[in-house]
């Protein structure tokens, strides 16, 4: 860890002494954000090149390696913008010379991390599935047993206890969500390739997940659920002639996924940010002499490790919470006329 940090100090010190805080802020957001290459340890110059796939304004697709534009070069009319509205993104120039953003489906760092997470989830889950195909009801041991107990924990503890007879119907979706988020979270905490991408701290990723839950909730919602939305059991003047309650209910339909999105995104991004800021402290204190830098380094490293350990816990908790809330939203839309139960769950929330 120390060696790693000291090697990073060398190039950073130059930039830090040039325009101080601005660079630090950029570094933080660079680490939190996406990129067209994957950083490798001990070098700021080299990156693992990834394919860039863009469609220009004329509708032509361009595909090239990110190493061709990594250091400010222009390739095929595309380059990575420095500053401005499209900072750090691939941009092109149209016929009038105006900068524009092409349709960008590049395999960026985050997208590759997504694929890696997918592969890890598949490997984990299929190891358990293979065990059950081969061994029937026998309980798995060791690694497979650990994954299986995690599956059982989520399935028995969250899905089955909330959804009851509908558990089998929605369990595949909810378990996929849990493991996908959990693996993405954990991979994000590994500092070097194949981890380190701040995936679940990216609002696009969490938004897609939340939209999925929104779709599942509303597509499979029962008649009773829709009746509760548009004609809830409240005094008539609350829904007619001005539909106050229905408006609130419809609004609530959309705030639920929004809350899911922001909760996961903010938690994971916060964790990453704290660790980076703690590390950046070393470079902030660097100009103050060797003693101060040394002391800061020790303190920062200890705190970083502590925060990373907490983030491991948070990784699990956030995956669990996302799954649990999705389960509850789905179960609320699965309610058949049992009013007490609905009320109870809503009170719990």
């Amino acid at each position: 860890m120390m060696i790693l940090l000291s090697t990073v100090i060398a190039p950073s010190r130059v930039s830090a002494s040039e325009d101080g805080e601005l660079k630090i802020k950029e570094t933080i957001f660079h680490h939190l954000g996406d990129g067209y290459g994957w950083e490798v340890p001990f070098s700021h110059h080299h990156r693992i090149p990834l394919p860039v796939i863009v469609r220009d304004n004329d509708g032509d697709w361009h595909c090239f390696s990110s190493s061709r534009v990594a250091h400010g070069e222009v390739y095929d009319g595309f380059y990575i913008a420095e500053g401005g509205g499209y900072n750090g993104k691939i941009v092109g120039r149209d016929a009038d010379g105006v900068e524009y953003r092409p349709l960008d489906l590049s395999i960026t760092k985050n997208v590759l991390a997504l694929f890696i997470s997918m592969a890890v989830v598949c490997a984990c889950v299929f190891s358990v599935a293979r065990w059950y195909r081969r061994n029937g009801y026998k309980a798995p041991r060791k690694c497979v047993g650990a994954i299986e107990s995690l599956i059982a924990f989520v399935y028995e503890g969250v899905i089955k206890s909330t959804l009851k007879e509908n558990a089998r119907r929605f369990a595949p979706y909810l378990l996929t969500v849990f493991f996908f988020i959990f693996v993405m979270n954990l991979l994000g905490l590994i500092v070097i390739f194949p981890g380190g991408a701040n995936l679940t701290g990216n609002i696009a990723v969490t938004m897609v997940l939340a939209v999925m839950t929104f779709l599942v909730t509303n597509i499979f919602g029962t008649k009773h659920y829709w009746k509760d939305v548009f004609w809830p059991d409240v005094p008539i003047w609350l829904k007619f002639p001005i539909p106050i309650m229905p408006i609130i209910e419809v609004f609530g339909m959309f705030t639920k996924p929004a809350a899911l999105t922001v909760r996961l995104f903010a938690n994971m991004m916060g964790g990453h940010m704290i660790v980076i800021v703690l590390t950046m402290l070393i470079f902030i204190f660097a100009p103050m002499g060797a003693a101060v830098t040394g002391a800061t380094t020790v303190v920062s490293v200890i705190f970083s490790i502590f925060m990373l350990l907490i983030d491991v816990l948070v990784s699990f908790i956030q995956a669990y919470v996302f799954t649990m809330l999705s389960t509850i939203f789905i179960s609320l839309a699965q309610e058949n006329p049992h009013h007490d139960e609905t009320q109870m769950i809503e009170n719990k929330l």
Binding site: A129, P172, L175, M207
Partner: peptide, 27 residues
Amino acid sequence: ELGLIFWMFLSFAVLFIVLWKFAWPVI
């Protein structure tokens, strides 16, 4: 980012369908 949304949606859909068809029911 639109690109990430696209890939995320695609990966999640693929992952879900694969696991839903071949893994979760067995488990």
